[in-house]
Design a protein around this nucleic acid. Structure first.
Lengths: 209, 209
DNA sequence: CCCGTTCCCTAACAAGTGTTTGGTAGGTTA
DNA sequence: TAACCTACCAAACACTTGTTAGGGAACGGG
């Protein structure tokens, strides 16, 4: 948690009233954002989905943007909690990759909407200083994955003839874009999806001759 | 070309004047759409990038939506030209996959912006009847890839213990999402990227023991 | 020289946007 | 009962949005 990328959101938390309502509203907002896209989502649509009027949202939040901010930052905070646990476990390269992939699909299971939003909007948001923590997170992300891959190549458990940077991009993209089709409670559990994906990436889909 | 999914765009083509200007404007519009997202892109931004005023765009196009329509439909038309050539070539399953992947990265090279737009916006657009051809294209797409994978499993060239549908999704996503980081004229040619990706997916990144 | 065409500009429109302000029903506390 | 707080509503605000209408400069053909 020490140098975890921080959100810049100043939360206007009601002191005594349950913060559950806040979480509820953020969940529905995230759902609408993920389904329609951030810019295409009007505050009136969010209010509709929440069963209230547009202006009433401003009792709970400063702005539409701060809703997005809070959705993304709380997601990233939880994500890095899980990632750091994996990275600090002292596993070998292959086991680290396996654990990171599995953890990622678990995060998608828990934060499907937030991941979808992050995937679609992060590129435009990184310009705004308010969302600079997205860039920081991306950097840490790349360091963790790329480092593990390079460590694996050096240790002789991953093929040396692969472009590590390209491989990183492929893996990163495939994992996170899964949030666009994954539905919790569907046929496959996050762990099952991770198993299948790891099987493909590590061993390939071709039959060995 | 026979049952290629058709666009619903009625083009307001100036009869004699060069249609190159139209293509120029669509290219800049596509670039802005890809960079900022369709909804976040105002017609004034497009006009700025094209060096004219917002209203002037409406001499060339009916609406902002029809620009998007024409961008996506011309891309899909060209895409399916290439895909059909591959699918009709009578290749084996593995060679078909290889050719499809290579062709896909070539299309990304040629239509980077359109692919990025397609990837980000197609989900919301499929609701509108005007963009129904996106759904048709998705269906054909799934049929081509899934069919080839299943053919490969039946022929014993692809592993039988893989979930073919999951594999399809993984491959599809990784290929197309590459449009978000690929830059033409960069370090790797489309063919090189395809080679690297195929190497990973077919043979895996783990060293064989 | 006039006419028509091509291509763009100026200026405005109505609808929709995020946000603010003032009010109020209902519960809790004193 | 009175004062207070929470959570919402009603109505409006300033601004941006996509789009339209009318006009004009450049240019070519007759």
């Amino acid at each position: 948690m020490p140098n975890t990328p921080q959100s810049s959101s100043k939360k206007k938390t009601p002191v005594s009233g349950g913060p559950e309502r806040r979480r509820e509203l953020l969940d529905t907002a995230a759902e609408v954002f993920a389904a329609q896209g951030y810019n295409a989502t009007t505050v009136r649509k969010i209010a509709d989905a929440a069963g209230m009027l547009a202006g009433s949202l401003y009792y709970h939040f400063d702005s539409k943007e701060s809703m997005l901010d809070e959705i993304l930052s709380t997601f990233l905070d939880e994500l890095w909690e899980g990632y750091d646990a994996v990275l600090d476990a002292g596993l070998g390269p292959r086991e680290t990759i396996e654990a990171l992939v599995t953890e990622s699909f678990r995060e998608i299971d828990r934060h499907r909407a937030a991941v979808a939003i992050y995937q679609k909007e992060s590129r435009h948001l990184t310009d705004q200083p308010r969302f600079h923590y997205l860039t920081d997170s991306q950097r840490r992300f790349e360091k963790a994955w790329l480092g593990t891959l390079e460590r694996g190549v050096a240790a002789g458990v991953f093929r040396a003839d692969l472009d590590v940077r390209l491989t990183y991009r492929f893996v990163r993209d495939t994992v996170w874009v899964a949030a666009s089709w994954y539905r919790p409670g569907g046929l496959h559990s996050p762990e099952e999806i991770a198993r299948q994906y790891l099987s493909m990436v590590l061993d390939g889909i071709a039959v060995r001759t």
